[in-house]
Design a protein around this nucleic acid. Structure first.
Ligand code: FES
Ligand code: FES
Lengths: 135, 135
DNA sequence: TACATAAAGGACTGATTTAGTCTGGTATTA
DNA sequence: TAATACCAGACTAAATCAGTCCTTTATGTA
């Protein structure tokens, strides 16, 4: 279906929110959740993912929250998506951890290599677009 | 997850199979199923979808089967994928049948329009690549 | 110190989607 | 008339996704 997950969508929205108010300190998960009508627990989890991938930094306690770790124009969409999404390949056998043994079609389909080029182009689109461009 | 469905994958494989032997008459669903180790019923269904979308033609009865309706270099990947896949949009609210009322984020997220540009670029990749290029 | 705030993290459930199967039908040819 | 092969739709099981709940940890403030 070639659709982004809700997590990816929420991650982009959260990143956008933080980028917009980055000058003025931290944004809390609650704040983002309410502003954009995203379930709190979900956006909290997504924000944690962004921290793990060093896209955002976090601060606990009162006045804490999240903030982008670098300028919006240096964060690409693929950074965000990879932070929350496990797979980002259009066909299974392109996954990094999949070997030829995993794929029954390996010796016959021969569709993998041409599609790899398609994959490369799609990655390029998400790599070239930054958070700054979706503000 | 941004992954193509198995149906799409099988459709591409089937299209490739037909393109390769297009000169010599019809290919049956059984033949393709066995050559590429795809479940018969599934590839049959996929082939029927291709017929509905005028990408392939079919002939019933003995010596019948499927054949591409036009030259491989005039059939783009997006033609194939659209024939078997219901949605082809990276976020829900881009679907043609979705109105602003469907999306709780409509008045706030503002992520839709920038992503539409991303969608356009992805469509371009699949539109520009033809079956002839995956042979 | 006590308390309120807010992130971290894991387990769990319900809903949706996907992949695959089964069954019965229709058209064509030998 | 029998074999072949497409057509069509219902159905099931497995996988994935979205969302919730709950407990813990860290930090600033009264
Ligand atoms: S589908 Fe896996 S190698 Fe082609
Ligand atoms: S998510 Fe639907 S309009 Fe933004």
């Amino acid at each position: 279906m070639l659709k982004l997950s809700k997590k990816a969508e929420y991650a982009l929205m959260a990143a956008k929110y933080m980028a917009l108010k980055n000058h003025s300190g931290f944004s809390t998960a609650k704040e983002i959740s309410e502003s954009y009508q995203i379930p709190y627990q979900l956006v909290a989890k997504v924000l944690q993912n962004l921290v793990k991938s060093d896209i955002a930094i976090s601060a606990k306690g009162v006045n804490g929250g999240f903030s982008l770790s670098r300028k919006a124009n240096t964060i690409s969409l693929i950074d965000i998506i990879r932070a929350v999404e496990t797979d980002f390949k259009i066909v299974d056998c392109m996954q990094v951890n999949s070997s030829s043994a995993d794929c029954v079609h390996f010796d016959c389909c021969k569709i993998k290599d041409p599609l790899a080029e398609v994959q490369r182009k799609i990655d390029k689109v998400f790599t070239e677009t930054t958070i700054a461009q979706i503000l």
